[in-house]
Amino acid sequence: MRWLALVLLLMPLGTAAQERLRVATWTVELTRNGPGLLLRDILKGDDPQIRAAQDHIRVVSPDILLLTGFDTDFDGHGLRAFAQDLDYPAIFTHPGNSGRPTGRDLDKDGRFGEPEDAQSYGEFTGQGGMALLSRLPIAAQEVRDFSEMLWRDLPEAALPEGYFDDDDLEILRLSSHAHWDVPVMWNGAPLHLFSYTATSPVFDGEEDRNGRRNADETRFWLHYLDGGLPLSSPEGDFVILGDSNLDPYDGDGRREVMHALLSDPRIQDPQPRAQRGPVANPGHLGDPALDTADWDDPQPGNLRVDYVLPSSGLEVLDAGVAWVDAANEKNTFRHGLVWVDLARLP
């Protein structure tokens, strides 16, 4: 388990108090088929998808933004280049588990070294990873990175019985991408950003290995809050944010786990709503205004999979889901940007 990860471009910020804080997450899907290709496209400056993403971020203007589905590299060059013209003095990233080789045949097809055999699906390490942009200073020495935690070490891990052998379990990590606890300093006190991206609960067989792992990646935060891990959750305010790939009402996956997180009394669900966005799918039970992903119909359709969940001690001022204009010819974004405005209670 690695506590510290790479913190980049950490610069002094102004000392003026900031009472209102906009915290957001966006599955931006800025990913390419090889290492360094996203950085190349960012540096060219004319990629319509990248420019549209940057424009959307400027419009919504979150103070803290977790990007998921963003190709990362070991030195953070891609994130630094992406943030160059955005107003974020502090950025944080670290290559996660997607595409990280294991040397094992994890999909049991008799072939080694395929994307399916990595810690989680990926053609190279860091493909579709996570990146954090912040206008607040990051407490770099207090960052906790749980991405190396083995899946079997999670209490009551829902491992698929008989599918993985002992050698697989010696190296298979829980995080398909990453689990981070990143503290930022907000008016002199830390706000902990519990950040993660979970695997999709599909693309497997009857053993349901992806569905089980997806559920455990969300259950991780309940164990962290309960003190059930070697490192207990720190005291104080926090926000759970990221892409759980799990809707509490519709789609595949163990939806009861998402219900358990959303109903935990230590957590608030602001239920960010879109003024416009995906329409209801036939047979879906969830409110379509809460959906954050617009996938092909009829399956899986539109789902709520991206979340910003503040701790109960914070005041929620406003919340929403901001979609890139569907009429925009540059719109290749299947997820909306989820934002929540917060204040600290007196």
Rank of each mutant, 00 (worst) to 15 (best):
G205M: 02
A118S: 14
P278C: 10
A16K: 14
S147M: 10
T68L: 05
G99P: 02
L309Q: 04
F194K: 10
Q84A: 15
L8W: 13
A215G: 08
L317K: 15
L317E: 15
I57E: 11
L132N: 11
V338P: 06
G96H: 11
G78H: 06
E116R: 07
Q141C: 06
D87K: 14
Q127L: 01
G129T: 08
R273I: 10
D47W: 00
R209K: 13
H56A: 02
E207T: 10
D87T: 13
A319R: 02
G99A: 10
G236I: 07
V308W: 03
G251W: 01
T93H: 01
H179N: 13
A83M: 09
N187C: 13
E156M: 02
P101W: 11
R51W: 01
Q275Y: 04
L13H: 15
R255L: 12
F220E: 03
N97Q: 13
V279C: 14
A53F: 01
E329L: 07
R255I: 08
G69C: 02
A24Q: 09
L37I: 00
R100F: 12
G99W: 03
L21W: 08
L9P: 04
I171Y: 09
A118N: 09
D41W: 00
P234C: 07
G78Q: 14
A140F: 03
W26G: 09
D55M: 04
L193M: 12
D105I: 08
S176I: 04
P288R: 13
S200W: 10
I50R: 06
P160S: 04
D85R: 15
P155R: 04
Y249E: 15
P248W: 06
A189N: 02
